[in-house]
Design a binder for these strands. Structure first.
Lengths: 329, 329
DNA sequence: CTGAAAGCGCTAACAT
DNA sequence: ATGTTAGCGCTTTCAG
């Protein structure tokens, strides 16, 4: 489909004015006769004109745009963040354009980071579970402000929950209810996972509880992995688990239920990172949640105001009818 | 944060060549000495250079970009579509940039459509439940190819499932199981909803079943509305319902369960538009599903190859342990 | 194989 | 209040 788009030149000709006047009219500048301005806009609309943002950006050297990179398409924990970003960005008269990198595909993430970098945004917000040094390097040498969202990385600017604290709170929740053999299921091999593991270890250690390495199982935060990982704990070696994400928690619950387990009698689960989906999937699930929406708001402020790295407060949400068994098997 | 980005001019100076040569080197053109090319790329990387896509587009008049507009941020049915789009777009060497319009906020949708239009994409894919004439007009007069995804609108190019068929299949599923008083809950007031309603009506009529207007309830496809709408059917006037979306279905199930109902004994539910979340929320739910991923693939092909409007095939997915009651109350 | 130069569509001084 | 003009950073002829 060959499409010839009208330009301000066409409009200028049609309106019998110069391109500068057209430009001014369309930008709602106040230094021209309202009547002319209105007439020009009228003509522009009739011609189905839309500004060529490339040319505009190039000429003005301004974009008022925030680029968001998302490295997940299977889980939806980032939707809350994105909503927050959108809200605050609009408030501050910024546009948001989003780039998807797929699911933890390193090569495509690199490619996507480069794509985002080529768009002359005011800055980049990066929502990704995994990041390799390569991508971080590209970002950090690219002369463009960026923030890692929900990714704690002490060497960079981030807006993240405190994963150590989250891991610790979740574990303590179970310990307080009498559990002694507590698993940690579905954390990743990267920093986030390591932090949560550290919090888990700290809670266990401070409670004087031993940790069995076989209680710790890695995954990719997905529902699928949650289901898979149930097999790793169905020998009954633990009475409770901290799920590395709500999707992991949901997967565990699904698999456990399918195996005929009754929850939470046979297994108590507390899940990290409750998103909205959490209520849906598992009303009985307790969640140590990040306030994702708030994280989005904060991210934009942090980026545009050039603030230092920051933590989002962690809150523990008990839902409906949670009653975990206060006894060890 | 004041950032001065390197340009090809800087690189040219640093490399002792002309900007033309730099441009060629970075575009991997084969008409220059490999050694020079490599050296230039090396320098570019060291300087943290990234192409200014605005300038590039302007000069070459090419973007190889597909713009996607999404008008939902609370439900996630579109993620499957987006994945399909991403996959096929990459295959065809196209970039995807995504614009979020929020949640059925007409003003913001208009704004977002305009933003997308200003980016010189090859075309626009629009995923939205509701669309008003205003936005459709803007799109259709903008000299840019576009497709409405999952929106049946005979006056425009669309890639959609056949909503009449979907409504009919779902209703027939319940009729075959012996239900006679069947509700339709949570459809919208727009074309999609009307089509599904029509299918429902056709199935009922062909089965010789009467339709009570009070069995039909409107909503916005959200989980929240599903919960709300349960009150509309809890008088027991229907023995089964077609849920207008899987989120509606999930909401109904949640509310019904909270009210102490046992499903499917007291109420059979079949849900339209099962996304992945569907399995998660309600393993016992039967779904008339669109293949969202396929819809994404098809959308890209359809757009880039300038094909006519098309329907995606509909499939009925029975999950796990569905056994609806074959008797009327 | 490389350089010089002419724009792409728009904005922003600077004139008038 | 409007027109003239010089670029923005890049690509792409056209020369050499």
């Amino acid at each position: 489909m060959k499409v010839t788009k009208p330009t301000i030149k066409n409009i200028a000709r049609a309106a019998g004015v110069s391109t500068a006047t057209v430009s001014r009219a369309l930008a709602y500048k106040n230094n021209l006769k309202p009547a002319t301005a209105k007439r020009i806009r009228q003509i522009a609309q009739e011609m189905g004109y839309h500004k060529n943002v490339a040319a505009s950006q190039l000429a003005s050297n301004m974009t008022n745009t925030i680029a968001v990179i998302i490295n997940y398409t299977q889980t939806d924990f980032w939707i809350g963040i994105l909503n927050g970003i959108l809200h605050r960005a609009r408030e501050l008269n910024h546009q948001v354009i989003t780039f998807y990198a797929g699911d933890n595909d390193s090569r495509r993430l690199t490619q996507t980071v480069n794509e985002a970098l080529e768009h002359q945004a005011n800055g980049i917000l990066m929502i990704s579970g995994k990041m390799e040094q390569e991508q971080v390097n590209i970002l950090s040498t690219a002369h463009m402000p960026y923030r890692l969202i929900s990714i704690y990385n002490p060497e960079h600017r981030y807006v993240s929950s405190n994963n150590v604290e989250i891991g610790e709170q979740a574990t303590n929740y179970l310990i307080k209810r009498g559990h002694r053999r507590i698993g940690l299921v579905g954390i990743d091999h990267y920093l986030t996972g390591q932090q949560r593991l550290f919090g888990y270890q700290r809670a266990m250690t401070e409670a004087g509880l031993p940790i069995n390495p076989q209680w710790i199982h890695y995954g990719d935060y997905s529902y699928q992995d949650g289901k898979k990982l149930f097999s790793a704990i169905q020998d009954g070696s633990v009475t409770a688990v901290v799920a590395g994400s709500d999707m992991i928690g949901a997967g565990l619950i699904k698999a456990a239920t399918q195996s005929g387990w009754r929850l939470p009698e046979q297994l108590s689960i507390i899940s990290i990172d409750g998103s909205d989906i959490c209520e849906l999937t598992t009303p009985e699930l307790t969640t140590v949640s990040q306030d994702f929406y708030q994280m989005g708001l904060t991210s934009v402020d942090n980026l545009l105001q050039d603030q230092p790295a920051t933590f989002i407060p962690t809150t523990l949400i008990e839902r409906d009818s949670v009653q975990t068994l206060p006894t060890e098997k």
